[in-house]
């Protein structure tokens, strides 16, 4: 059953189109990664789905409820972390959490428990009594994540949840998301940190200029868009190696980096199977001292860059 459904969602700011007939379906219990270049319309979509902004046309449903601006029915079952979370800075972190808990009508005891639990989850228990005014960007993002979870939302909307987090924070949030998924929470997150998306998201949707370009699982995207690239490094500068490869039919392109310390070849191939068998032989026959030999893991970034037709990465 789809938990998030967008039909022909369109949003125009003056003359700027932000969303152009966006169709989107997210199933229950998935972690959905919403990607796209700057200005693609990710934040706009999240704002509409959380009832903060009105679409110019089109409809959307979240957990079976039609999305209406400021609909309390909808808002009581979602959690939302904005792109730049902003708090009443005269409050302490704990006070803000309690305030949010009261909005959701938690009983005082439940509210206390929930606040402590979540502040601990985002590692803010020590700073909980301090005024938010003195919080760093990452601390604010942590608090933003904690407040979005207070009502045990059915659907969690996160706009770039890890953009300001340190590596520990990122690992923690990914772990939290996986745990939420186990509790059947649907997570809809936008991000530019593709490594994170790869690690947690089941499905990825890529949006560009307000339209969905593709929607697929991370594995499928990798398979479809991964460049087949081998990396070979020699101890010596090996000028004779590239011409050796150029003659072979299964080679597509070779990118050479020569240094005083040796040489690095990024080799893109047409036929992965043949390459896997043949390339080691070519390397051995070349007589150079091998330092490193590997197949580059295909990444989501490759898919992203290729799909959106921006400049190719290093190969």
């Amino acid at each position: 059953m789809p938990v998030i459904l967008c039909r022909n969602l369109t949003k125009v700011f003056g003359k700027t189109p932000a969303l152009d007939k966006l169709d989107l379906t997210v199933d229950e219990g998935t972690i959905y990664g919403f990607l796209g270049p700057n200005g693609a319309g990710k934040t706009t979509t999240l704002k509409i789905l959380t009832g903060l902004s009105q679409p110019t046309s089109g409809q959307a449903w979240v957990d079976g409820i039609e999305v209406q601006p400021n609909s309390r029915h909808l808002q009581s079952r979602i959690g939302y972390l904005p792109e730049e979370p902003s708090f009443y800075t005269w409050m302490s972190a704990r006070e803000y959490m309690k305030f949010v808990g009261r909005i959701f009508n938690l009983s005082p005891g439940e509210n206390d428990r929930r606040c402590d639990q979540l502040l601990e989850l985002v590692n803010l228990e020590e700073a909980a009594g301090r005024r938010i005014a003195g919080f760093s960007r990452g601390m604010r993002q942590r608090l933003g994540i904690a407040q979005a979870l207070i009502n045990r939302p059915k659907v969690l909307f996160l706009d770039e949840p890890s953009s300001a987090l340190d590596p520990f924070g990122r690992a923690e949030i990914l772990e939290t998301l996986n745990r939420l998924k186990a509790e059947a929470t649907t997570v809809f997150l936008s991000s530019h940190i593709l490594a994170d998306v790869e690690r947690v998201c089941d499905i990825v949707g890529i949006i560009d200029q307000g339209r969905l370009v593709i929607e697929a699982s991370v594995d499928e995207l990798r398979r479809r868009f991964a460049r087949s690239v081998f990396v070979v490094e020699f101890e010596e500068t090996a000028p004779a190696f590239a011409p050796l490869l150029d003659a072979l039919p299964w080679i597509e392109r070779v990118h050479t980096e020569m240094g005083t310390e040796g040489a690095r070849f990024s080799i893109r191939v047409k036929d992965m199977v043949t390459a896997k068998q043949e390339l080691p032989r070519v390397v051995a026959a070349s007589g150079f001292t091998l330092r490193r030999y590997e197949t580059e893991m295909p990444t989501l970034e490759d898919a992203f860059l290729q799909l959106l037709g921006r400049k190719d990465s290093n190969a």
Partner: peptide
């Protein structure tokens, strides 16, 4: 942006 934080809640 504090209004958006508050008004995204019920």
């Amino acid at each position: 942006g504090t209004a958006a934080m508050t008004l995204s809640k019920p």
